[in-house]
C-alpha cells in the first residue's frame, strides 16, 4: 500500500513541476519582446538524479525517504526563440496529460481495492 501512496506522491510532484514548466514557457513567450530578457528554465535534473539513485536496486536507500527540493527556475543566458518555446510547451502539455492519465489509473486501482475487487 505504501508503494501506491509513493506513486501518487511522485505523480503529484511531477504534475507540479510540469505546471511550473508551463508557467516558465509562458513567461518566456510573454517576455520575448523585452530587450535583454534571458530565457528561463526549470532546473529539476539534480533532484531527479538523487531520486533515481534512491530507486537503484544496488543502493540501500529507501525510496519512501527521499527528500525532494523544490525545482529551481534559472536563467539560461540566451535569448528567447518563439518556435522553440512553443514546441517545448506542446511537449510539456503532453507530459502533463500523461501524468493526469497515470493519476487517474492509480486512483481507479485504489477504488478497486476499496470496493474489494467488485466494480
Amino acid at each position: 500500500m505504501s508503494d501506491s501512496i509513493l506513486t501518487i506522491d511522485l505523480l503529484t510532484r511531477a504534475l507540479d513541476v510540469s505546471a511550473l514548466r508551463q508557467a516558465v514557457y509562458s513567461a518566456n513567450i510573454a517576455n520575448a519582446a523585452v530587450p535583454g530578457y534571458q530565457r528561463l528554465e526549470v532546473n529539476f535534473d539534480q533532484q531527479m538524479e538523487s531520486f533515481a539513485a534512491a530507486f537503484d536496486s544496488s543502493s540501500n536507500a529507501d525510496p519512501t525517504h527521499v527528500s525532494m527540493n523544490a525545482p529551481s527556475v534559472v536563467p539560461t543566458g540566451t535569448a528567447v526563440k518563439l518556435d522553440e518555446e512553443v514546441a517545448a510547451m506542446a511537449r510539456n502539455a503532453l507530459q502533463y496529460q500523461t501524468l493526469v492519465g497515470a493519476y487517474e489509473r492509480m486512483s481507479s486501482l485504489t477504488r478497486l481495492a476499496i470496493h474489494e475487487g467488485r466494480e
Partner: peptide
C-alpha cells in the same frame, strides 16, 4: 505564441 500559451494553460 502568447495565445497558444494561454490556450494550452486553459487545456491543462
Amino acid at each position: 505564441a502568447n495565445l497558444r500559451a494561454f490556450d494550452i494553460t486553459r487545456h491543462l
